[in-house]
Structures are given as structure tokens and as C-alpha cells.
Write a protein that binds this DNA or RNA. Structure first.
Lengths: 220, 220
DNA sequence: TAGATTGTTAATCGATTAACAATC
DNA sequence: TAGATTGTTAATCGATTAACAATC
């Protein structure tokens, strides 16, 4: 309820899952959904669902649950997904191309409107229907098109330098797909997709599991 | 120190960053590094670094810090990155190709040894030097090559079905790049790269920041 | 009204951080 | 030895969960 406190990150990260489920419920023409039902489908606790949804400021109704349509709007508004966000993608390599080709981003209110790369062979071409521009044009185009979000998908080595350029171009939020830890002004919002961290969790667990199994095989 | 308790996930996720820094230190021929120095470079607290590193079971030395080479080995052992892990990648689309082309995985002890796809146009071809097989061959090849890790990069709609097949093929650990929440036996280890969650954090913060700035513009 | 589901307040749990004795 | 840095134990912090009164 307290709209001045910043929202807990773990809760914000769960909101897209609620949104997805609510959209499915809307397609099924259900008008209300309870926290118990959401919790069951997403394998969470009902109380956690209620706490998370309260972030949006929209209250549920006793006996009924949450108004599906209203809650969809409330979550989208909270996340800034109510209007499509135009973003530039910098680095039209393998990963960059993959991200542009992923249509699912439209569900997240994200539209990658142009690509930027230093490779002259790529500049001027189109990837998945989006034009590739030279990095030299980034500042000019970002200001002109009022783009304030950037997806960084260059090599680790180039990441810091390109990020600095993005900031000069007026980009406020950077979705960082590189392994680099960027050093930028505090006012710039950076969210990193840390594949190494994710793989570390998976492979350490696998490693333990395999050790356990080998132990069991030897009759321990 | 208690090696029976499972490791806290946030700590495990930080280990690759330590590893990367330690490797850099080794290249610079430094033999010891203190928690204070690691903390400074990674923007963490020294005490957190010490707690995290203690997970590996390797102790530091008072006055000196941590033995760089020994700690690299200890972290790699802990994560199961001491020997290269062979993995299959299922779904040779945009994202799948990008992941195969990303050479950085070698630093994480991961080697994607083969690709699988249902698209007949792709089967038999090579992507970034790896052969693409039909999904029909997954079970046979996984057993024969003793592969127990799989990277899932198919469409959201196919994810559950393909994951079931992976489990039938004896795959124990699944790195899930799809938006699907997989329902699998509890013994299967799943780690999901949740792009929607990550974007939610970024765009909700951006949204707040822009609202704030617009407020400031209007003289509030 | 009775009953189901909500939001609030308090308790629990786990991760982070602080204080400090132990160590080389 | 003196001093820097460690690992341990305790305190703090934040997120999750439990209990329950409020509500339609």
C-alpha cells in the first residue's frame, strides 16, 4: 500500500508470471480470480500472491478475488508495459539477432525499433525487419526518436565503451546481456542478465546430485 | 564450513564473478588476493566475499588473503566447472544458435556438443560447427554419450513436451530459456533464465524514473 | 446471514552485515 | 612482536509466511 517505498525486487520479478496467467484467464472469459488459484497454478503461497499484487495498488474483492481485467491493467501500468516501450539494440551479433527475432517481447511492452553495430557489412542491412545502423548514428537517432531504453548485446570487451556512448545518447535504462559489470552514473538504470550466475546454480546442483548418485552406486 | 547444508543461492550466483576476477589476478601473476580487494572491485562487502568463498571449503590466510590459484580450483570444483560439462542444446532457432555461437561458455565449463531440432531443413546441417540432429535421435544419443545436461531453447508451446523427452533421455539438469514453467519429476534440476522477470525490474524502474522526471519538469 | 476471500499485523526465516577473537 | 586479515558468533535487515479481523 505504501506507494513511496520502492518495491521489493523479488516481488517485481514475479509480476510477469501473474500477468501471463491473468491474460490467459481473460482469454477464457473469467472475470475474477482468487489468490489461491493463482498460487496453485504458479506453485506459490496465496499470501505471497496477495502481497505481490498489492504492489500495484489495486485491491481485491472479498469472496470474489481479483478483477482479471483491472489487475492486468494495474500490473501493466506498474511495470510500464501499458504503452509499448521503444528500445534500441546495440550489437547485432548472434545474441542480438536472437533477441530481435524473439517476438515474445511484445507481450512485455518492448519493441526493438532499430539495431546498431560497428560492422560495416551489417550496417544498412535488415535483421528480422529492423534496420541496422552504424554506432556513429546512435546519439543522433536516440535523441530524435526519444528512445531511452537500450539492449546491450555487444562483446564483453566493448561493453563499457558502448555503454558510455549509450549514456551520452540519453539512454536511461540499459538491459545488459554482456558479462561486464558496467561503471556508469548512478542515475542510469542497469539490469543485467547474468548467464554465468544462472549456470552456476544449475551446474553446482548437478555436480552435487551426480556425486550423490555415484556414492549410492558404490553402496554407501 | 558445514558441507551438508545446501549452499544459499545468492552466494552461488556470485561465485562466477569471483572466479572471473581470480582468473584475471592469476594472469597478472598475483598469488594472493584479499577479500577487501575482491569486494572493492566487485562492489560488495568484504565480509560477504569471505562468507561466500568459505562455501568452497578453502580457507584464506591471515595477513595474506586467499591463494589465487587454489581458490580458482576450489570454486571450479564447487561449481562442477573443473571438467568440461557436455550438454545438448534443443531448439536450433534464433536463441539456440546464439547460445551455441557464444564462446564464453567455455569459461563456465560448458560445451554444447550437439544440437537438436524438429525442423527437417536444419537436421543434418551444422551451426557454429555443431551438427544438428533430429529430436528422434535425442534419447539414443544422450544415453550413448552420457550427456546429462540440456539447454532448452524451443518455443514456449513446445517446451513441456520437449522437456519430458529430455527427461526420458536421462537428462538430469535443464537450463530452461523458455518462458514455460516446466512440470517435471522433483529429481530433475531446472534453472530458468527468466527474461520477463529481468525486464520487469528494468522497466518498472525506468517507468518510475520517467514519472519522477516529468514531475520535476512541471515544477513539483 | 454465513462463508469465502481479502488486507493487515505479527512471527518466522534466511541472507547480509557487524563485532571481534584467532592467526600467521 | 605488531599488525593485517582471516573465520566465527551475534545482530540486523528484508522477504516470506502465519494468524486473524475486516469485508462483501
Amino acid at each position: 500500500m505504501d506507494h513511496n517505498r520502492i518495491a521489493p525486487t523479488p516481488a517485481v520479478r514475479r509480476l510477469p508470471a501473474y500477468l501471463q496467467l491473468l491474460r490467459k484467464a481473460m482469454l477464457a472469459e473469467e472475470s475474477y480470480i482468487s489468490s489461491a488459484r493463482i498460487a496453485r497454478e504458479l506453485d506459490l503461497e496465496p499470501i505471497q500472491v496477495r502481497k505481490d499484487l498489492s504492489l500495484t495498488g489495486l485491491a481485491g474483492q472479498p469472496r470474489l478475488g481479483f478483477d482479471v481485467k483491472a489487475m492486468i491493467n494495474a500490473i501493466e501500468l506498474f511495470l510500464g508495459w501499458d504503452n509499448t516501450n521503444d528500445a534500441f539494440l546495440i550489437g547485432a551479433g548472434n545474441l542480438g539477432s536472437a533477441l530481435v527475432g524473439y517476438n515474445g517481447f511484445m507481450d512485455f511492452g518492448l519493441n526493438i525499433s532499430a539495431l546498431f553495430d560497428n560492422d560495416d557489412d551489417k550496417v544498412g542491412s535488415e535483421i528480422h525487419g529492423r534496420k541496422v545502423y552504424s554506432l556513429d548514428q546512435l546519439i543522433d537517432l536516440a535523441w530524435r526518436m526519444h528512445v531511452n531504453m537500450g539492449v546491450l548485446a555487444v562483446s564483453a570487451g566493448a561493453a563499457q565503451q558502448v555503454a558510455d556512448l549509450m549514456v551520452d545518447a540519453g539512454i536511461v535504462a540499459i538491459w545488459n546481456f554482456t558479462p561486464a559489470k558496467l561503471k556508469l552514473p548512478a542515475s542510469v538504470i542497469v539490469e543485467r542478465v547474468d548467464l554465468a550466475a544462472s549456470l552456476a546454480v544449475l551446474s553446482s546442483r548437478l555436480s552435487r546430485e551426480l556425486t550423490k548418485r555415484r556414492g549410492a552406486e558404490n553402496g554407501n
